[in-house]
């Protein structure tokens, strides 16, 4: 997140009218950055960016090349590919987290961005959940069951682990579809490299 605390969306799109339209739709809810080509997009990209809308067909660096460099930098942002035609190939294997085919409607754009942000939220909840489980496991591995039964700290931890598990499965609805599943797994690998 950046100064404004709003999630940051980076639009990489070579057609100014199209880019402006996306910006108009998104700017109420998000901090929007714009880039007219792949090189500019990579310059604008930093750890604050949550979601990248990446046009696939651009002069200069193509969307695929930009994606590859984004993944190399392990920034953990989500990337939605914007295409003129419905992709006839496996976008999951290519490393995109979602795709949108033109023309895009406002509602559709919001839905995709929100969904990708939910993935990030799921990641951080999962991270938090892991930290609790690890603490709990450390206590279990080092203290006797009598000591654990006496420990308020352990009791509290156990409670929080249960609550957090429910949060993970209910609040965010778990993993709904294939692209959610792959995008989340890709997030795990990114974390590991950091």
């Amino acid at each position: 997140m950046s100064d404004s605390d709003l999630p940051v969306v980076l639009i990489v799109e070579d057609e100014p009218d199209v880019a402006e339209t996306y910006k108009l739709w998104l700017q109420q809810e998000y901090e929007v950055r714009m880039a007219q080509n792949g090189d500019e997009g990579l310059e604008q990209l930093d750890a604050d960016v949550d979601v990248v809308l990446l046009d696939r067909m651009m002069p200069g660096l193509s969307g695929d090349e930009v994606l590859e460099r984004i993944r190399e930098r392990n920034l953990g942002c989500r990337v939605a590919m914007v295409t003129a035609v419905e992709p006839d190939f496996d976008i999951l294997e290519m490393g995109f987290d979602a795709y949108l085919s033109k023309p895009i409607r406002s509602e559709q754009l919001h839905e995709t961005v929100d969904n990708l942000l939910d993935r990030s939220e799921y990641d951080s909840l999962l991270q938090e959940y892991y930290a609790l489980v690890e603490k709990q496991a450390t206590l279990e591995a080092t203290k006797s069951s009598a000591e654990l039964a006496e420990s308020d700290q352990y009791d509290e931890l156990t409670q929080r682990v249960v609550e957090m598990r429910d949060d993970l499965s209910e609040t965010l609805g778990g993993i709904e579809d294939d692209s959610d599943f792959i995008a989340t797994l890709r997030g795990l690998s990114d974390d590991e490299d950091n």
Binding site: L126, Q127, Y129, Y130, V133, E134, L168, S169, G174, I175, E176, D177, F181, T184, L185, L188, S189, D191, E192
Partner: peptide
């Protein structure tokens, strides 16, 4: 091949996928 944190998260995410 990978640390326990990552395996833990992987299992969690996979369980969620199996659930759906």
């Amino acid at each position: 091949y990978t640390d326990k944190k990552t395996v833990f998260k992987f299992c969690h995410v996979l369980s969620s996928r199996l659930d759906s």
